[in-house]
Amino acid sequence: MSRIDPDDAAQQPTPVVNAVGVGRTYRRGQAGLLGRNSDATVVTALDDVSAAINRGELVGIAGPSGSGKSTLLHLLAALDTPTTGRIEIGGTNTAELSERARSRLRRDHIGIVFQRFHLLPALTAQQNVALPFIEWGVGKSERRDRAELLLHRVGLGDRLTHRPAELSGGEQQRVAVARALAGEPELLIADEPTGELDSEAGANVLDLLADVADDRAVIVASHDQAVLERVDRIIRLRDGQVVTDA
C-alpha cells in the first residue's frame, strides 16, 4: 500500500484534498436515436468551487437538496472527476488518473462511510472490516487481527462475530467506520453518517469521527445541525456554489 509521507505533509502544508475552481456539469434530457440526447440540457451541479482541507480538520459540507453536496462529495472521494478545475488528493490531480488508478487512490488514501452502512449481510463485523485488506493481499490471520483491533478502536470489541442484522444501527455505522479506517486513510469522507441513527447513536458516531480526525482530514456531508455543530469548519453550498467556508 503506498502512502503519503506524513513528514512531507508536515514540511509542506499540502492539503490532503484541494479543490481548485471545480465545476461539474451534467447533460440531462430525453435519449434520442442511437442513445444521443436529442433534447439535452446542460445542468450545472457545481460552479467554481474551491476548498482545501488539511490533516486534522473535521469539515462539514452543508446545503439544501440540489445544492451540489453529493456532487462535491463524489469529486472529493475521487468517485468522479470535475468538468472544469481540478481536485488534488495528496497532490495528485484525480482527473489525470484512469478509472483503475482512481480506484487504487481510493483504496490507499480514502475511507468512505455511507449513510446506510452497506455492510455485507453474510459476513460478520470482523469479516466486513477485513474486506479492504483483501486487496492488499493481507493474509487471513493478519486480516482478522487488524479487523479486531479496528473494532476495538470503535468500541465493538465484543461484537466481532455478529452479523449486521444482529447489530443496532449505531453499531453497524461504527463497523462501517472501522472498515473505512482499514487502510489508515489520510482522508475520511462520511455521507450523512447519522442519517439513519437516533440521536444517541448519532452522537457516538460523531465522537468517533472527531476522534479519528486527529490524524487525518475528515469530511462530513450532513443536513443534521447536531453534526454541523461538532465540525471545525462548514462549507455551505447553494446552487452549486460555495456560500460560506468558515
Binding site: R104, R107, I110, H118, P121, L131, I134, E135
Partner: peptide
C-alpha cells in the same frame, strides 16, 4: 440485493475482478 453493498466496496477501492 447487494448492489449498494457491492458498489460501496467498489467505492472503497475493491477491484471489480474481486
Amino acid at each position: 440485493q447487494q448492489r449498494r453493498e457491492l458498489a460501496a466496496l467498489k467505492a472503497l477501492g475493491s477491484r471489480t475482478r474481486t
